[in-house]
Write a protein that binds this DNA or RNA. Structure first.
Lengths: 191, 191
DNA sequence: GGAGACTATGTCAAAATTGACATAGCAAGG
DNA sequence: CCTTGCTATGTCAATTTTGACATAGTCTCC
């Protein structure tokens, strides 16, 4: 059996609830799924071809806008099986990259006032994200997605984690901004 | 002026407190910095050469073990300036990838009992990580690194965020395991 | 005395990812 | 009428990242 890349599994995940066109998959990798797994258009179309060649997905084609056909992709039985098998596998250790933490590590080399503004901007970014998550969370709750047997419980659960993890991050950003203000005061003790 | 990649800035960050050999940088990109920015050996050596060609770092060379010279790299004035400028820049939106959340999104396609074990294993992984962070945090505190003017305040601050963010994640993993147990009970209501 | 780990440098091919380009119909607003 | 945006498919070159290979001295444990 052919090996499937992480992106391949991401696409299988996106298709688990029903058929989608390549274009719709591109949208999904931006908005709901893009919050925890992103991919460019230029990655998605070749990967769909690969999954198809491996028999994990199949598609119907109709006439579409533009010069090419519009294809609606869905999981095959083999695809569903491959997905189910992967889901319960212990995850291979993945590179985790956080530019904000990287900058924080080298804090001592930066201007405190500049860093203060940086952390305040970060806090605002995360606050906006939190607001959006809360809206989606409320929407899913109103559709009773908090029931583990609800088909959208998975999407609901990802928001639960975001809602638990984002406020501590916002508080940390604000705390960092305060620390930077304090540092700036000490360095330039003007009256 | 030549543009510097994210990895390049990561190396400048690693060098902000003093000179290091390539080998030591490889270690740093695994342990302290590796928690938020990773890089392989095969990336680091060419990137050091690039930074050097751009005049952002320079090195002394001595005889080393093995067939090549041992080089100790340090920031130049230009490197220090480039780092300081980058640190306060608003970060370019970066791809964030979380395999656990990806799996959670497609939960409905998986076996609940298998997923329960998956989440319990995740909780344990994060618990071990938290223990390690707490140890390092206590160590830095004993050296008064919680003072924003302390040279290691940046490292201390990264641990502060980890300590705030990890417990909610562990709680979420345990909650998910419970939900999966509940789901398994419902599907197989044996007496 | 030999096996394995650590210090220390680097290369190479393959895979994954990004960003820009290319084609086209259809709809909406000014 | 013209521009902008949306649907829809794909390609291409360049960059980034991964994983494996290669060399060689020292040190520690069995």
């Amino acid at each position: 059996m052919a090996t499937v890349s992480a992106l391949g599994y991401a696409l299988l995940c996106a298709l688990h609830r029903g058929p989608l066109t390549g274009y719709e998959l591109v949208q999904r990798m931006r908005k709901p799924i893009g919050y925890y797994w992103t991919a460019q258009q230029s990655q998605i179309y070749p990967e769909l071809a690969r999954l198809s060649a491996n028999g994990l997905i199949e598609h119907d084609a109709e006439a579409g806008p533009g010069p090419r056909q519009r294809k609606t992709h869905r999981l095959t039985a083999a695809g569903r099986e491959a997905l189910a098998g992967w889901l319960v596998e212990p995850p291979a250790p993945r590179a985790f990259r956080d530019e904000t933490l990287l900058r924080t590590y080298a804090l001592a080399a930066a201007d405190p006032e500049g860093m203060r503004e940086f952390y305040l901007a970060e806090a605002e970014t995360y606050q906006r994200r939190l607001d959006a998550f809360q809206e989606q969370h409320a929407d899913l709750l109103s559709r009773h997605a908090d029931d583990p047997s609800h088909p959208q419980f998975g999407a609901y659960a990802t928001l639960e984690l975001a809602l638990a993890g984002t406020p501590p991050r916002i508080r940390w950003c604000r705390w960092m901004a305060e620390q930077m203000a304090e540092l700036a005061r000490r360095r330039e003790p003007s009256g």
